[in-house]
Amino acid sequence: MTDAWFAGADPDDPESGATRVRTGRAPAPADWPAEAVDAGFAADETDYYAKLRSATLAAASEAVAERERADDVQLAHAVRAMDDAERTANELAERVVEWAGTLYGDVPRGLDGVRDIAARDPKTAAEERVVSYATRAVDLLDERDDLRSFIEERAPTAAPNLAEMAGPVLAARLIALAGGLEPLAKKPSGTVQVLGAEDALFAHLKGRATSPKHGVIFTHEYVRGTRPQDRGSAARAFAGKLSIAARIDHYSGDYRPELHAELADRMETIRARADEGADE
């Protein structure tokens, strides 16, 4: 019995060949074109390559589509889009407030100002432009909020433990930075700890700086809310449990409450150091 991709495949059905291309394995290559002709799978070499082409094209398209529809890919795109929307809205807002200040006497600062301007009734051509521009910024802000809701809804299904532990948005960010849930699950926790701090990490590797204590996980209360001298420990403990959570989510997918209790315990111990210090 041969391991060839065409073994057991229907010569007239590229789909059956495609499945074998995707799932098959062989310990070593062989002269597959000749074997296929001998086995009657193909009439000649030209026919073999035509069949191989259909099967590999179908296999690659299916595999890509399956992978790209996956929830983790959608989450990664959503969180990047959310950041784009927020950054752009802020940029527009700056211009709106600056411009509106020359037309109106009473413009609140920042994003509140933009919402305020967008709700006004323009009286001149210039006011019309500034109000219209403000409306775009407000639309973008609404889009950002919708994207956030989408992430909050999807993350708990895509990565239940990670979303519970880090919060949906940070979970999505970690997935985006790692390039997917599987790559995240395969990263050592030391890498998870500094995801998003690549500049600082490379400066350190080049010998120009100390090693970064945390990357994007800094946004979580467990890290940010711990006093500076214990933040390294907190980040290390948090990253360790996060990478375990990512592995459970990727390889099994069930929710494990005990994992979250362990982390809460550990965090309490680390934070207790601050109280001990105060007593001394």
Binding site: D3, A4, W5, R20, V21, R22, G24, R25, A26, P27, A28, P29, A30, D31, W32, P33, Y49, A50, L52, R53, T56, L57, A59, A60, S61, A63, V64
Partner: peptide
């Protein structure tokens, strides 16, 4: 895949080059 669709002799494989056994059943010797 788009590039391969325009060419008769190009076979795209979504595989890991570090794991040759995952495509040895397709790629000839």
């Amino acid at each position: 895949v788009g590039v391969a669709e325009d060419r008769d002799n190009l076979f795209p494989l979504l595989k890991d080059a570090r794991d040759p056994e995952s495509y040895a059943h397709v790629v000839e010797a």
